[in-house]
Design a protein around this nucleic acid. Structure first.
Lengths: 256, 256
DNA sequence: CCCTTCAGCTTGACTAGACAAGTTAGCTCA
DNA sequence: TGAGCTAACTTGTCTAGTCAAGCTGAAGGG
């Protein structure tokens, strides 16, 4: 208390609370701000700052009116050795997954989609918008865009919560070939935050993917997935580098 | 003001300030908390909450005593088509890079290192600890571990700011073979935060890598790099998947 | 029995004020 | 001139309090 503080009160408080909570299972209730303030003899705002820090660390999740609960992030691995299945990944972490198909509509392809999907000027695409839920809480939002001509009647075939991957292979007989994926952490755009039911611009992990047909090599599907960064611990693995750098042009005092 | 607020004050304030700052170059000074509070007629803590939100979004960086400045993240791309060079990546973004070698010592290998580097019970390793600076500000911390027997005298060969990659190829004649990399976003452990000169447990991107010798396939280098998440926008690309899932075991209501 | 209402809890938002810590620029003094 | 100190500014920390928003469960009425 009166020792010379190198650390602010809220920080040491959050460290202490974190070590206490680490022994509790996910979903267990954390002490309330009021209770913490009373226990440590500090102002409610100080206790609040500590809990907000724990929320940033992903240790707890806070709900207005309901309280604060212990949280565990779901490990979401992406790499050349696994095809990630959202449903199975979440279920393996002991969390109940659910998928809600929000929209499935046919429209004209945008310019960037024509280029990526190898389409002509008047070709149409099917867009699937899906909400990903973890224990009935909004955890991610995903859009898939496919060439309408190659998947006729897709919006009728994919039911609520249906698997695009499964439909492609079983119903249309496509063998999926190469898959390209790109991952980055960003602040969610406003319209994504709204669909996730969150205010402001929460941190999300954007996963972009492209699936090609194995036989013809033609692109079959473009995917954008926004995953809440506070609910997922995304681990990306890069396989072998294809293009190794030539040793010559590397300058002195450069990094490996 | 008196319209029915769906949004809290600090959020709309931060959105407004962000759009103003988006027109300014990196390094430009942002308005102070006091100035903002006066301009919008709110309490300093409310203006402060807005600027803290912008700091979370990576729009500004704040320094006690000095003020708040506009920030731009450095795009750091990792993927099968590029070997990332920290120095060149940072310099390409218009930021001045610098590397400080903190320590270079020989010691016994730990158990996990023996397994990963394919070493025997008494083999020794060289560990290089390097600080990565952006415009003289601490931006990352990196450790490299190499088998001492394969790089004799490394600590004398690598000077301050020297390149491990360059030394391996030019001085020791190793042609680097495959490179494996794994990326994840975490809260920095205490000792990493201290070396980065930061308090608490700031968000960092942990990049782990392994470099093998092309000719023999023997592991040459293990790398851990902690990059400040507020300074780098790490984009990871995964190439082709090697193992495609069999269509049969995919269950109903599963994700693509 | 079910449904509504409300009391009591939670977190969220905001204000007013005080002091501490750290940086910078300029002024003063040797 | 040069070194050092100070004043003025910044962000950081913390307190005390008020009201709002949202959820839950219990009490009460139909």
């Amino acid at each position: 208390m009166s020792t010379q503080r190198a650390e602010p009160l809220w920080l040491s408080l959050s460290d202490q609370v974190e070590s206490e909570l680490s022994r509790l299972p996910a979903g267990a209730p954390a002490p309330s701000e009021h209770e913490l303030a009373a226990r440590f003899g500090v102002n409610r705002l100080t206790a609040r700052a500590a809990m907000q820090e724990l929320e940033r660390r992903g240790v707890v999740r806070r709900y207005q009116g309901r309280g604060t609960v212990v949280a565990r992030k779901v490990e979401y691995r992406i790499g050349p050795d696994w095809i990630p299945s959202w449903t199975r990944t979440v279920a393996a972490a002991g969390v109940e997954p659910r998928t809600v198909t929000e929209d499935a509509a046919t429209r004209r392809a945008r310019n960037d989609e024509r280029a990526e999907l190898d389409l002509g000027g008047h070709d149409r695409v099917v867009q699937l918008d899906r909400l990903r839920l973890c224990d009935e809480e909004c955890a991610g939002y995903q859009t898939s865009v496919l060439p309408a001509a190659r998947v006729p009647g897709l919006r009728d075939v994919v039911g609520v919560g249906g698997s695009v991957y499964e439909v492609l292979t079983e119903h249309y007989g496509f063998a999926p070939g190469r898959v390209w994926t790109r991952v980055e952490q960003i602040s969610a755009p406003g319209w994504v935050a709204r669909r996730l039911g969150m205010r402001g611009r929460p941190a999300v992990v954007l996963v972009r993917g492209r699936l090609d047909c194995q036989r013809t090599g033609a692109p079959l599907e473009l995917t954008f997935a926004w995953l809440r960064a506070d609910m997922f611990d995304v681990i990306v693995e890069v396989g072998e580098w294809k293009r190794l750098p030539a040793p010559i042009p590397v300058r002195k005092a450069d990094a490996s």
